[in-house]
Structure formats: structure tokens, C-alpha cells
Nucleic acid binder design. Sequence first.
DNA 1: ATAGGGCTTCCAGTAACTGGAAGCTCAAGG
DNA 2: CCTTGAGCTTCCAGTTACTGGAAGCCCTAT
Lengths: 133, 133
Amino acid sequence: MNIGEVSGRSGLPTKTIRYYEDIGLIHPNRSGNGYRAFSETDLHKLVFLGRARALGFSIEDCRTLLALYEDDSRESAQVKAVAQGHLAQIDAKIAQLRSMRETLSTLVASCQGDNRPDCPILRDLAGAADDQK
Amino acid sequence: MNIGEVSGRSGLPTKTIRYYEDIGLIHPNRSGNGYRAFSETDLHKLVFLGRARALGFSIEDCRTLLALYEDDSRESAQVKAVAQGHLAQIDAKIAQLRSMRETLSTLVASCQGDNRPDCPILRDLAGAADDQK
DNA sequence: ATAGGGCTTCCAGTAACTGGAAGCTCAAGG
DNA sequence: CCTTGAGCTTCCAGTTACTGGAAGCCCTAT
């Protein structure tokens, strides 16, 4: 399989696939003409990577997960630990965004949004202390 | 004021302050010795930037907001539009994270996390199709 | 022979800093 | 007066995970 076909089947851009090879996530063979020659196994790994990335795992997490995937003597606890760590980070991120969202939506609601210069949003940014008026 | 004092008063690292000057967000004067000489106005701008960044606005949004802040003839509608745009992005991000969180927490819950190799998380990553068994 | 599309590599840029190196300035102590 | 150390300066590189673009080879069809 050439890179174009693998790209179509995995849903990953060719650029990304080459990048994954660069950083050592996959190791496709080469044909005589210098083209990458992907095996079904390579394709499966790319699909795996695509799914893991879609769930927000970092590349380094993906590297770990892929190694575990290929290690028949892995313990599922190792996989679970990685996933739980990532889940905790997602929760932290969500909490942070919710906090921002709350402040921001309050500010947006308090702004008239008309042609006058007075704006509670700017007032808040200029100094949280100046709450009122 | 030297950069150290401004850093302390604004809560921003000196590195960040220099970076903000590099990209043209602030324009502090220079003393005879080559040190940056910050005015109270510079400090206020930095506090403004720190708050805006804390709310997740991009640097480019910050640039826009700062310009509006300094423009006495601004219309609050302009500010509100920027804030609403950002709010929409935050909502999109939260939705994405929640979706990831849901999938991931289901997977984590289904994994025994023991010393055996069998793992539903890896099974899912390897191909969403292989749901059961 | 030539045109095109796919493949190759390599370089640069993205967002917003952060760390580190080399070197100048300033205030205090001996 | 000299030294020491903190604080300041600039510049370069690295971070994350790609993405775009340039220059050029390969293969197939006309």
C-alpha cells in the first residue's frame, strides 16, 4: 500500500503519517522506488493512533499505548493508569473552561453591545476591583 | 519602574512581559542604561492583558481588546462581539472535551485494571468496530 | 515526449511562551 | 576601589502536533 491509500483508509493526512514515521511511531518498509510500503499492520497502528488522538491522548501517551498494544504480556492496569491520567487532565481542563465560561458569560450578559463606549467587559479586564459602575 | 517590579505588580513573568513588548502589545520607554522604564499605564495594560489571557482570549483577541480599551470612541458592541466569539469557542471546546470524557470514562470503567493483558480500552482503540468481547 | 498526479525530502511557520547562555549595570560590603 | 550578586539586556532554541510549500523524482496515460 502506498501512503495515499493508507491515508484514505485511516483517515489521517499523508503529512501526519509521514510525521508519525519521523517521530518513530510507525516503521513502514520501503519499495524499490523509495515509496513507503505500508502493511496491514501499519494501517492498524495508524487507525489506533487516530482513535487515540481523537480521544485527546498526547503523542507520548499514544506511544505508550501503542507499545502496550503490541506487548502481549502487558497488564491492563498499565493501560488503565494512562487512561485515568488523561481523564483527570480532561476533567481539569473542563473545569478551567467552565470557570472561564462562567465569568465570560456574565460579562457578556452585562454589556449592552450598542454604539456607546461604556463597556463592563473592558471595565472588568482593566481591573477586577472596579466591579460596579 | 523596572521590569521586576512590574512583574511583581502584574503577576506576569518578566519573560512574558518582554515577549509582549516583542509582539507589540506594549511599548515601554527605555532608561539611559537600556533598562525598560514602565509607566503606570504600561502596568495597567499588562494587568489588562493578564486578565484577558486568564479568560482564555488569544493574543490577537487581546490586541483587539486592548485597542478598543484605548479607543474612547469605541462601541461596546465591538467588545461584545469579540467576547461572544470567544465564548462560542469555549463552548465548542467544552463540548468536545465532554464527548471525549464520556467515551473515555466508559472505557476506563470497563477495564479491570489488573495484571492480565485483556483490555477493553486497547480493544476499542484498535478498532471501534470490535465493540464486544 | 509530455503532462498529470502521487511520491520523496527538507525547511519554515503555527501559539504563546519558557529556559538558558553570554554579558552589561547597579548597589552594597570590605 | 574592587568584588560580588542580583537584576537587567539580547538572542537562540525548544515546546506540541502538525501543516504548508518548494524542489524534484516516479509512474501512467496520451
